[in-house]
Amino acid sequence: MSVFVFPPGPRVHILGTGHHLPDPVRDNAAVIAAGCDTTADDIVKKTGIVSRHIAPDDVATSDLAIAAAKACLDDAGLSAAGIDRLIVSTTSPDQPVPSTASFVHAGLGLDLECPAHDVAAACAGSLYALDTAARHVLTAGEVVLVVGADIRSRVLDVTDVGTAPLFADGAGALLLGPGPDAGGLLATAAFLDSRGRDKIGIVGGGSRRPLTAERLAAGEQHLRMVDGLDVYMSATEGMADAAARILDGAGVDKAAVSLVVPHQANGRILRRVAALAGLDDDKVFSCIETVGNTSSGSVLIALDRARRAGRVQAGDVVLLLAAGAGYACAAALWRVGDAP
């Protein structure tokens, strides 16, 4: 079932959020200095991005995830001992095997009774993970930590004007758990339009095309946007469609939505999502200007920044939207309880 509407009764609540962005900050001049043949003005005009955070060479995806998870636990006022399950969304894992969740598990000092695994749905992955996590809360009363983390900079071709200015590094986290009947998640949704599976991705390094010296020389280890226009149009249509479906499923009018927190893909995508979905521009939260597109981290980073900026208040209805390679698409609808 692609749209899941939570039944009446004890609800699934967001107990805390957190995020972590590594240093240094890379501005557009640095992107150009690294070999991207464009101008700073053009990057801003085309993407809305002024700067982004890039992880140093000795930092792995799990390091960002752990920092975000700790910020989230601090926000929730819980220790790691209170976590029953960990789900990490990433498509830039520390290594192919084992899961990045294994390293986050170790970094947080979680015990044997706390299972942990990865989810891979690119930029939509953290909301796919949230969808899975919410069902564990609902059916087993678990407290589940969801982390979305990516180090996109490791797979970028610094000369590629289609990707180098866009993508960045970062992690976001969210803690879900059972709570009172009022407030909490109203619905989650996940979709996949696999016609988009060859439009953006990394073709080398998997079982289909293991990396060889020849393929490395051809740049198959890099993230490539094969059809940027199709990605732009499909991502915006996908998020707008997900918004319509989840609101319809939950019986919530779009006028009742207080805040939309979409995947921070680029500035133009945010505007088109709002237009297609018939949502007010001023209700759409954006941090794209200084964060860039952090893939799996994106929505959870934006949600945490929105909360900390006071954009989320008790009683608000918050719509989370994401779209990513695949094309994967996901949404979540949250009625904020007493403590935003």
């Binding site: 289609g162 940027g228 990605v231 732009y232 149009m233 133009r268």
Partner: peptide
């Protein structure tokens, strides 16, 4: 056109 300019075109 590059992909960004295609987006500008559609917008």
């Amino acid at each position: 056109l590059d992909s960004f300019d295609e987006v500008v075109l559609i917008e």
